[in-house]
Design a protein around this nucleic acid. Structure first.
Lengths: 162, 162
DNA sequence: ATTACTTGTTTCAAGCTTAAAGCTTTATGC
DNA sequence: GCATAAAGCTTTAAGCTTGAAACAAGTAAT
C-alpha cells in the first residue's frame, strides 16, 4: 500500500519543510543579531568578517577564487568586499608568482589584530545566542545537520595542503 | 575548580561555534539551490517567493509591517519587493478601512495560482535537498534547533486570529 | 485642543549579491 | 606553432538588504 502514483511526495516532505523553516528562522535571527553587534561594536559587516575569518584561518592567504568557494558566494561578490577591506588597510592583494591572473589576498598586521578582537567577541555572541543547547546537544544537532544534505559541493578535499 | 576569571567562555562555546557554522553552511547551500531553481523554473526570486508564501498562508492579506515582521526583514525592504510583485500583477495593495496609513497586501487570482505551482515544486525540492534525514530525524533536528535560541523575537503570539 | 508619542510606511545611500558577459592569462589539442 | 578551451578575475545591471531619516496618521496625556 505504499506504492503511489506521485512518487516521493510523502509524509516526510512535510517534516523536511518544517525543518527547513526552522533552519531559516534560526539562521536569520542569529545573522541579524551578529550583523547588528558587529556594526555597533566594530563598525563592520558580516561579509567582511567572513572574509577576514577565512583569511585568518589560512594564514598564508587565499586566492579570490578560493575565497569565493569557501564562503559560497559568487566570484564577483568577493571582488567588492576585498576592495573595501583593502581601502581600510585590513587586507593586502599580492601577485601570485607563477600565475599573472591570480591574486593572493592576505590579512595585514592591522587586519590580524583587528580580527582577533572581533573573533573573540563573535564566539562569545554565538555561544550566548545558542545558549539553549549545552555542548553535547550542540554536537548532536550539528551531526544531524551534517547528514541532512544530499548535495555537498565541498568536493574540494584537496589531498595536498601547501 | 569551575569558577574562572573569564566567565562563560568555556568548552561549550566551541561546540556552539561549530553548530553555527554548520547551520550557516546548510542554509547557504539550500538557499543557493532554491534560488537557482526558482529562477530557472519560475523566473522568480527567493524573497518574492517568501512574500507570496506569507500572503498565501494568511489569505486575508497582510499589512506591510506584518510582512516585515514575519519575514524578519526590514520594513523598507518589503516596499520594493511588493512593488515589483505588483508590477507583475501577482499582489494587490488595498486601503485599510480604519487606518489611512496602512496598506493591506493580498495575492491576486493570478498570484494564487502561480504560487501554488511554485509551492508544490518548492516542497519537493526541500525534501530532496534534506533527503539525508528521514521524517523522524527531521523532527528531532527541528526540535533541537527550536530550543537552541535564547532570543526569540516572535512574541507576536497574538491571541486573536481574525 | 495642544503637545507629545507611537505606528505605518516610504525614501535614500551604502553595501551585498547574483548571473551574465567580458578580459586576460594559462593549459590543451592538433 | 596555432587554435581552442579553461581558469582567474572584473565589470555591469538588476535586485536584495539594511539603517537612518523623513513623513503622515493615529493615540494618549494633560
Amino acid at each position: 500500500m505504499s506504492g503511489l502514483a506521485k512518487p516521493e511526495l510523502g509524509t516526510a516532505s512535510k517534516e523536511h519543510l518544517r525543518l527547513w523553516l526552522r533552519i531559516l528562522k534560526v539562521n536569520r535571527l542569529i545573522e541579524a543579531e551578529l550583523r547588528e553587534r558587529l556594526r555597533v561594536n566594530f563598525d563592520t559587516t558580516l561579509p567582511r568578517f567572513d572574509v577576514m575569518s577565512a583569511l585568518y584561518r589560512k594564514g598564508s592567504g587565499l586566492k579570490m577564487s578560493a575565497l569565493s568557494r569557501m564562503l559560497m558566494v559568487s566570484n564577483g561578490n568577493v571582488t567588492g568586499i576585498v576592495e573595501r577591506l583593502m581601502q581600510d588597510g585590513l587586507v593586502l592583494r599580492e601577485a601570485v608568482p607563477g600565475d599573472r591572473r591570480a591574486a593572493q589576498v592576505t590579512l595585514t598586521g592591522k587586519g590580524i589584530t583587528e580580527f582577533r578582537r572581533q573573533a573573540a567577541a563573535h564566539e562569545a555572541w554565538v555561544s550566548e545566542l545558542l545558549g539553549g543547547l549545552d555542548a553535547a546537544d550542540s554536537a548532536l544537532a550539528a551531526r544531524y545537520l551534517g547528514t541532512a544534505l544530499t548535495i555537498d559541493k565541498t568536493e574540494e578535499n584537496d589531498a595536498k595542503n601547501p
